[in-house]
Amino acid sequence: MTQALIRKEKLAELVTFLASRQKVVGPVPLSNGQFKFAEVSSLAEMALDYIPTILPPKKYFMPQHETLLKYDVAKGQQMEAVVEVEELTLFGVHTCDLAGIQCLNVVFSDRPKDLHYMIRKNHITLIGLECSDYCDSYANCGMLRNHLPKGGYDLFFSELEDCYMVDISTHKGESLVEESGLFEPVVFEVEKQLQTLRKAKKKIFKSEVPIRYQDIPRLFDETFDSDVWKRLGEKCLSCGNCTNVCPTCYCFDILDEPELDLSKGRRIRVWDSCQHENFAKIAGNESFREERFDRKRHRFNRKFRYPMLRYKRIFCTGCGRCSRTCMAKIDLKETINALMEERG
């Protein structure tokens, strides 16, 4: 739509303003150099210079546990479909995570649409934040071109010398800018600073693996029977860390949670993982991905190959979380390199 700028000294005031309207969630520091998205009421509680949080912001779009139905079987199979929502502002979301949310948007708006996701999404205001450099060596956002903003936000902040350039992308974002009264019109000097930032980023962010974006799906086609998968299978503990922290993993299980009277209860969905042994099991106990290597291969293909066919995009955002969190040190970049090497 349009652009504005906000002076750095006014950022704290902006966060306070946002928090006075509704719940604000931003990156907060944990121990050992790690971060998580959590509720904040001031800028001081946040760490805007952060590496990807343990869990991506998907937890606000499709929570770990989510109620689908409330039921009561006292008089037959009675139920009501419900969605639990709250107005939320997500502050300081990096471009990789914005890309992740865009992937989830595609999945859940594909027919049959997922109303729970769609309704919750409409209650969330997204404020993005540009990275000027790599967060750490696990990231592979350059290869997927997710180091640059590609939409998916209401407002997007790029840090410059003494202000932030703000891209306003929606009416929701526009009214925030107006109501807060903290923003100024863009001046030429600031526009130039943004150009300089983007130019500098072009030098910093390079494809981390020597492969072109458009060649990635074919690589996975050609390496389906590769020994690389066998080797990953030997290492993998099937703990599900990689899928839980992935911004585009959305598999789930559906469970009933009865209350103590056994009459009322909730039908919920809970995050599930294709890495678990019984994920693809059917009645009678036959499993279609019994081996760890098969499950590992399935996960990689669900990032780089299958969604290309179905949704015309790669479902890896380059955030590096899976490599960062893997107990067995299964590294995404190393895996792609190994696949390329083996294919020759």
């Binding site: 998580k36 949080t53 343990i54 869990l55 770990q64 503990l237 099937s238 703990c239 599900g240 860390n241 839980n244 922290v245 995050w271 993982s273 678990h276 042994e277 019984n278 969190t325 107990m327």
Partner: peptide, 12 residues
């Protein structure tokens, strides 16, 4: 029948 890690990640 999955690892404690699953719930531990849920709890971030």
């Amino acid at each position: 029948d999955y690892a404690v890690c699953v719930e531990c990640k849920f709890n971030e």
